[in-house]
Amino acid sequence: MTKPDENADSYSGLRRSLIGGIGGITLLFLAGVLAGYSVATLEHGGPTLKDAAVMVAIFGMILAVCLAGWKLWPETSGEPIAPSTKRARKWMYAIIGFSLVAGMGFAVIEAPDANALYSNAPIGPMVAMLALVFWLVITPALGWAWWRNVDELEASAYLESSAIAIHAYFMIVPALWLASRAGWIPAQDPMIVFLIVTVIWSVAWLYRKYF
């Protein structure tokens, strides 16, 4: 494979990752909004004409995001792909799909509280049990299946980005803890820290893999 071919493949891979990541987050957000709005509407006696128009508009945005992702998705180069790479991609798609379904399910169960995922309000025991099973059992199983099929370059990028993320966690958490104890900032929220570290991990992984 020539250098231009390698650059084209890297660009296509980065493009797929960005479309999948940004599109997936957008779809999750819109699905949560639609679910919360729908449940809140039903709790108030059913949808009015205005409510129906809002729900149709949100559903239209979901379709628009799906259509944009399909149109922008890069074509394959036609180069042969190793079976392990194909399996790794399938497991990654499974992880993304499972995450979207789990997130939408959580949004529906906790509706109409739009910020349920990031709040510290009490939740039902059944919701907590299902969430813990998904997070502690199914998610590691899918991740392990993906890890067993990645190539050396993918594994190297993943391990290096993991090291960067954990070092960022070591720096951020004590800094926020000390700043909050000094009264400079509110008490740290574990989900906010989780999101910050996840973003750092994702950016480091994309950079390490494609640049």
Score class of each variant (00 low, 15 high):
P125M: 13
V173G: 01
G124M: 03
I62F: 06
T2D: 11
V197E: 03
P190I: 09
Y169R: 12
M171G: 05
Y93I: 06
R148T: 03
W144H: 11
G143D: 00
A52D: 01
M92N: 02
L100Y: 06
A68E: 02
K86W: 01
V65W: 11
A35Y: 04
T198H: 00
L67D: 07
D113H: 13
M126S: 09
P122H: 04
A53K: 06
L42R: 02
D189H: 14
A157S: 15
F59Q: 08
I81W: 08
N120Q: 13
L18D: 03
Y118I: 11
A107Q: 13
M104A: 11
P140Y: 05
H44W: 04
A116D: 08
F106P: 02
A40L: 11
A141W: 15
P74R: 11
W135A: 12
S99H: 05
Y93R: 01
E6Y: 11
I95A: 04
S99P: 00
I96D: 01
M171Y: 03
S12E: 07
L159K: 04
K50I: 14
T198A: 14
L153H: 13
R89M: 15
G60A: 15
S77K: 04
W146M: 11
E160Q: 14
R87P: 05
L14P: 01
K3T: 14
E152V: 10
P4M: 08
F211E: 00
W70M: 12
R208P: 00
M191S: 13
Y118D: 06
P122D: 04
L159S: 05
